[in-house]
Nucleic acid binder design. Structure first.
Lengths: 306, 306
DNA sequence: AGACGTCATAGCCAACAGCTATCGGAACCA
DNA sequence: TGGTTCCGATAGCTGTTGGCTATGACGTCT
């Protein structure tokens, strides 16, 4: 007997319908059927009478139902009580993140954390790595997702590499598509450039200079969303993390050869232990990444580091 | 969160000791440690403070303990209530079995069934297949473990092949041991023979006759235990299932080539549905066999059929 | 210092929960 | 009667995981 089997059992008892119950539990119908069957053989008695389109509880099922409900309720209570004592009932996580992450996978991760710890306040600051590092040091942030390597000489941070994201050239959809490009191909071509302070600005400029030319700007100064809209409007190309193109049908991302990528790390102050809420966020976030990686639901061009 | 993890948690809380708790739960210590750790990360808080030789509950653990106990108690109650409704609280199973099985693995199987269904009365009848089949037909048995093929022409039985057991030649320990024997080697050699009615008597006689000779008897007429004692006493050899030699240091079993084996089947009347208790016995027994097979705890010379 | 006791870690394997694809049979409808 | 639809069961595959053994780390006691 397992709690999950009981949850499935209650779902079927409520829905009087295997397929609908499976949908509600977010699993495939055969998986649920199999678990119910396992529970039945474990208990040694059928729990449902499966008349066509009319699933009903057997007496054994009737006897089990209230106990199953109570066990599940107890499990929920236990979860809450422990969370309360662990200081995760209330609390606050102040998280810094780069714009590309905010636009990309952060939303789902935050949703997951909020679902797990609904009482914890979530504050997100969007900014370049330099600003985030400064705010971490000032104690204005608990955690930050930053770009490595750090420019600042401040070694008072612990960093943990967690992601690698590929940079691609974003162009307007339909503009003579290519399989891939070299940085060299950007020479003379008008670029839409981020405002000062963005890591991507430095990255792009460095790449061009290393290729031996100074890039030409069609427009500069925007935030992430503005830059993408300018590209959509045909003002020019931009170098961006491929993940921000997810869900932007008007834009095409062309990979660069040799590949250009950035390493994203989770950083916090070395001198103070992160709050329990911050630790919980870190755990949830890492779990979210590995899960997404496993389920192939990560945006393209993002790779989870071991 | 899983019920088993909670059971492990309660065990550790009671014992204040991981290793002892693991013993009590009949698992290896690392397995238990891993489950406790999984529970802790699942709940987001440590449950034990692991001071050397002084394991104590954290506040979170204290909060969880009563709820865990209640969930486990509910699970137990649910099991009992369902069993009661399924008619397994009381009831009776009348089981027939051949002497070799009774002497061999049946004891452990019965213990397991009794543990699972303590309210069910267990009656065992030991006898040859012919007698068992007759008693099944008369309604004096619910289930029987018999030797296939059936001699009787009564087709009113459902049989399910479950085991194959090897026959070996039992001789006194120390008597010029051989790696293997042919049936032919029994010619002229005094045999200890079972009484009429034993399947083994027929099997032995048939094998000898097929090899072209009539066996010589040193003594005949005993039950299983007596036959084995006669062999131990040096009266002669006997053909027996290798499993009955398990735990008889005074006897050696020599395999026959070509191999001689018997198929054991579980039989019940075709015309009446077995009682719920009998069905439960069947399930438990089959599970016992596959478990034993997996854990390599079957007596030698016995093979579980798929 | 060394032996012991105790929990954690590492690495391996079998079992299983999950999936997709498909079947079988009841109900419904023309 | 013969599709068609719906719904649960079945089959076969895969990734995850609970279990094991062996070993490590580290305190305690002789």
């Amino acid at each position: 007997m397992q709690l999950q089997q009981l949850a499935y059992f209650v779902a079927v008892a409520d829905a009087r319908h295997f397929t609908q119950a499976a949908e509600r539990m977010r699993v495939a119908q055969p998986s649920l059927s199999k678990q119910i069957r396992a529970l039945e053989t474990d208990l040694g008695a059928p729990l449902f009478s499966r008349a066509r389109g009319n699933v009903t509880l057997t007496p054994a099922g009737e006897a089990l139902l209230p106990l199953a409900r109570r066990m599940l309720a107890d499990a929920d209570t236990a979860r809450r009580e422990v969370a309360e004592l662990a200081g995760l009932r209330k609390g606050r996580v102040r998280l810094g993140a780069t714009p590309s992450l905010c636009a990309g996978l952060l939303a789902d991760a935050l949703a997951r954390f909020h679902h797990g710890y609904p009482g914890v306040e979530l504050l997100v600051e969007e900014g370049g790595s330099r600003d985030l590092v400064r705010d971490l040091a000032r104690g204005q942030l608990d955690l930050a997702l930053i770009i490595l390597p750090l420019q600042s000489s401040d070694p008072a941070l612990t960093t943990e590499e967690i992601l690698r994201e590929n940079l691609v050239v974003a162009t307007r959809q339909g503009e003579r598509p290519r399989a891939r490009m070299r940085v060299e191909d950007l020479r003379g071509r008008p670029l839409v450039m981020f405002r000062r302070g963005y890591d991507l600005r430095e990255a792009t400029l460095n790449a061009c200079r290393q290729a031996g030319f100074e890039p030409r700007f069609a427009v500069e100064g925007g935030e992430m969303d503005a830059v993408l809209r300018f590209v959509e409007a045909g003002l020019g190309a931009a170098v961006v993390p491929s993940m921000v193109l997810d869900g932007r049908p008007g834009l095409t991302g062309t990979p660069l050869v040799p590949g250009l990528s950035r390493t994203i790390a989770l950083a916090h102050r070395k001198d103070v232990e992160p709050t329990r809420a911050a630790q919980a966020f870190r755990t949830t976030f890492l779990a979210f990444l590995t899960d997404s990686s496993r389920e192939r639901t990560l945006p393209p061009g993002v790779e989870v580091l071991p």
